[in-house]
Write a protein that binds this DNA or RNA. Sequence first.
DNA 1: CTATTTGTTTATCC
DNA 2: AGGATAAACAAATA
Length: 280
Amino acid sequence: MPELAEVEYYRKVWNPGLEKKVRQVYLNPHARNFRDCNTLILKQHLKGRVLRSSAAKGKHLLFHFSGNNWLGIHLGMSGKLCRTCIDKDRKDTQSVFKQDKHDHFVLLQSRHVLIFNDSRMFGRICFHHGKEAPEWWRNIPPALSSNNFDRAALKAYLTRRRRSTIKGVLLAQERFPGLGNWMADEILWRARIQPHCHAAQIEGDKLKDLFYAIKEVCRDALNVIGKDWSNPPDSWLFNHRWGNKGRCPKTNKLLKRETVSGRTTCWSPAWQQWPDCSRD
DNA sequence: CTATTTGTTTATCC
DNA sequence: AGGATAAACAAATA
């Protein structure tokens, strides 16, 4: 599930652990989540450290610990962060924290248990020791909400990917960090562009529509889902896109679900007719 | 039993 | 050579 806004939400779930020491690290070294990570080194370096800060960029999370230690987390398809509180009257923490089958990484603090849970294990955990944040973090492209993502950058990328469907293009993290399947559908619906449209076909005013839809969906998603995971209003495509019988909030006509660029895509044929009306 | 899934990497083909 | 596409990863859910 996690896209830009969900990742930002999950980042804050661990906030109560800020400025608190890690007493113990539990992890499942066989979980695929650690495929790029030396789990022994990770445990050694995090034990006894204080969680200083956290940040989210696109779908990536970075937690900074004392002693120049950095924990990178990507949630993949099914990853989530959660937390449980430890009752201060109970000293037996093992009896307080019931480890779920898919809790592959756990930081135990004196008052909180910070948990990474991922059933499908497409998520990724990595560790970095150094004065500076890791290189992969610094290389994440500028946030879509920043002024560094502008119409010129969008146009240049659409030109480079001119033969791809716009749906596939919007999912490219190298240009649109944080966009995922539902956000891409929401953007195209708001900009009234068919998901099968080739990138080259978007020009002039339609390029402007697309640009502002990207900005708007990022802002709205962060303000609603990213803030406290409250349910978006029914005026978004979001609430209607998951099942097979959803109706377009604009036209009240049935939405269509098809695979576009390898991903399930929901769109409103009556509402999204750019670049022409030849498809239904 | 089968089909589907909110993400990314890798191999393969053009 | 660069870019598009399909498969693979793994487990839950319908």
